[in-house]
C-alpha cells in the first residue's frame, strides 16, 4: 500500500511539471499532502495519541487543508490563473522531468539502499528535482512557491524513509518550515502581485 501511495506521489509530480493552471497546482499540492498523510500513517510502528495527533496536524491539517486553502486564496485575490506565456512548453517540461526521474533512479541505485528505501529515495530525489525545476523554469512567483512546497514534501518523504518515529524536534522543524512557506511567502506573493509580478528591480547596474 505504501509503495502504491509513493508511486501516485511520483505521478502527481509529473502532472505538476506539465500543467499550466495554478488551481491544478494547488489541488496537486493538497493531493500530495493527503498521500504523505497515508504514507506517514503506515510508517508508524506504535500508534499513540501523540504520534497520531502530530502526523494528522503536520500532514492532514497543514498540507491538505491549510496550505491548499491559502494557495486558492492567493489565486483568487491575485487573479493569476496560468503560468507565464513564455514558460517552457509542456512537451519540453515532460522531457526534462523524465530525465530527472531517470537521474533519480540512477543516483538511488548507486547508493546501495535497501529495496524498501529505494522507492523513497527515487521519489524524494525526483521531487527535489521537480521542485527545483519549477522554480528555475517558471517566471511567476506563485510557481516558485509551488516548487518550494514540493521540495518541502520531498524532505518529509525522505525523513519518513529513515524510520517510523521522527523525533519531535524534527517534526517541529518541519512545521516551522511549513509556517514560513505558507504564511510569510503567501503574504509576500499577494503584496508582490500588487506591485510587480517579475522579480527584476534589483540589478547590478
Amino acid at each position: 500500500m505504501t509503495l502504491m501511495l509513493i508511486i501516485v506521489f511520483a505521478i502527481s509530480l509529473i502532472y505538476l511539471s506539465v500543467t499550466e493552471r495554478f488551481r491544478i497546482y494547488a489541488g496537486l499540492v493538497g493531493l500530495q499532502g493527503l498521500l504523505l498523510f497515508g504514507i506517514s500513517f503506515m510508517q508508524l510502528d506504535r500508534i499513540t495519541l501523540a504520534t497520531v495527533l502530530f502526523v494528522t496536524i503536520e500532514t492532514l491539517l497543514f498540507k491538505v487543508i491549510i496550505v491548499p486553502y491559502l494557495l486558492f486564496n492567493v489565486i483568487r485575490k491575485t487573479g493569476v490563473a496560468r503560468v507565464h506565456e513564455k514558460a517552457l512548453p509542456s512537451f519540453y517540461s515532460l522531457l526534462m522531468v523524465t530525465l530527472g526521474l531517470l537521474l533519480s533512479i540512477v543516483v538511488s541505485f548507486s547508493m546501495n539502499a535497501t529495496p524498501y528505501n529505494l522507492m523513497f529515495f527515487i521519489v524524494s530525489f525526483f521531487a527535489i528535482y521537480t521542485g527545483l525545476f519549477l522554480i528555475i523554469s517558471h517566471r511567476k512567483i506563485f510557481s516558485h512557491l509551488i516548487g518550494f512546497l514540493v521540495i518541502e514534501n520531498a524532505v518529509l518523504l525522505l525523513s519518513l524513509a529513515i524510520g517510523s518515529e521522527i523525533p519531535m524536534l524534527i517534526n517541529l522543524g518541519i512545521l516551522l518550515d511549513i509556517f514560513v512557506s505558507v504564511l510569510i511567502l503567501g503574504i509576500f506573493v499577494m503584496r508582490l502581485r500588487q506591485q510587480t509580478d517579475d522579480l527584476t528591480i534589483l540589478k547590478d547596474d
Partner: peptide, 20 residues
C-alpha cells in the same frame, strides 16, 4: 519587498536542502 521575498524564499529552499 523583492529583496525580502528572495531572501525568505531562497533561504527556505537552502535550509530545506541543508535539512536533506
Amino acid at each position: 519587498l523583492e529583496a525580502t521575498w528572495k531572501y525568505v524564499f531562497v533561504c527556505s529552499v537552502g535550509i530545506a536542502l541543508a535539512y536533506i
